[in-house]
C-alpha cells in the first residue's frame, strides 16, 4: 500500500490550522498527498504536463474550499477534487475537435529496478507494460476512464464512485464493465509484454 494511503499522524491539527488560513500547515498536507494527487491526475489525463497542471489546480481548489471539508478521509476528499478537476479538463478536450486526448501517448518512464533480482531488461519490459496499460486507459472515453481509474487504480467502491461522478449505481456497474472489457481487448494487442501467467 502506498505511504500516502495512511493519513498523517497530526493530520487533523494540520487541517484545522489550514482552515484558519495557515498555508504552511496546508503545504505539509500537500507534501504528503501530492504523489497520490499527481498519480490520479496522470491516470486520468494521460500525460505529465496536463497532470501537473491539474494537480496544482486541485491543491489550490482544495485550499480555497477547505471549509467544505467535513471530516472523514482527507485523501479521499482531495482525490475527489482532483478527479473533478481532471474530468472537467477532459470534457473540454472532448468538446475541442483539435485536441484528441486519445492521441496522447503515455510517457511513464519508471525504469528503476523494482528489486535487486530484476534485470534491466525486465525493468524496461515492466515500464513498457505500464505504458501500454496507460495508453489503453487513454483510449477510453472520459466517462469510462474516470470510473475505471477510481475503481481499479484508486480502489473506491461503487457507491463512492457513484457519489463522486454523480451517477446511478447501475451506471457505475455498466460503465466499469465496458471499460474493463475495452482494456482487456486493448491489452491483447500487447500480449508479448505480459508475463505468460498473466496473458489474457
Amino acid at each position: 500500500m502506498p505511504a500516502t494511503r495512511t493519513p498523517l499522524e497530526n493530520e487533523p491539527a494540520l487541517i484545522r490550522a489550514a482552515q484558519r488560513g495557515d498555508v504552511d500547515s496546508f503545504n505539509a498536507l500537500v507534501q504528503h498527498y501530492q504523489n497520490a494527487v499527481y498519480s490520479l491526475a496522470y491516470r486520468l489525463m494521460g500525460e505529465s504536463h496536463s497532470a501537473g497542471d491539474a494537480a496544482q489546480d486541485a491543491f489550490i481548489t482544495a485550499y480555497r474550499r477547505l471549509e467544505t471539508y467535513r471530516g472523514g478521509s482527507f485523501r479521499a476528499w482531495l482525490l475527489k477534487i482532483t478527479a473533478n478537476q481532471c474530468y472537467d479538463v477532459l470534457r473540454r478536450y472532448k468538446r475541442q475537435p483539435g485536441i484528441s486526448i486519445e492521441e496522447l501517448s503515455a510517457e511513464e518512464d519508471d525504469t528503476t529496478l523494482a528489486d535487486s533480482a530484476e534485470t534491466p531488461e525486465q525493468a524496461a519490459e515492466r515500464s513498457e507494460l505500464r505504458r501500454a496499460i496507460q495508453n489503453c486507459i487513454n483510449a477510453l472515453a472520459p466517462d469510462q476512464r474516470l470510473i475505471l481509474v477510481l475503481s481499479d487504480v484508486e480502489g473506491f467502491d461503487y457507491q463512492a464512485i457513484a457519489d463522486q461522478a454523480q451517477i446511478a449505481l447501475g451506471t457505475v456497474k455498466s460503465r466499469l464493465s465496458r471499460a474493463r472489457a475495452a482494456i482487456r481487448d486493448c491489452l491483447r494487442g500487447a500480449e508479448e509484454l505480459i508475463a505468460p501467467q498473466l496473458r489474457l
Partner: peptide
C-alpha cells in the same frame, strides 16, 4: 494489470 500500476512520484512540489 490495472491495479499493478504504481503510484507515481510527483515531478515537482505542488506546495502553494
Amino acid at each position: 494489470l490495472i491495479q499493478s500500476l504504481p503510484e507515481l512520484t510527483a515531478p515537482r512540489s505542488f506546495a502553494l
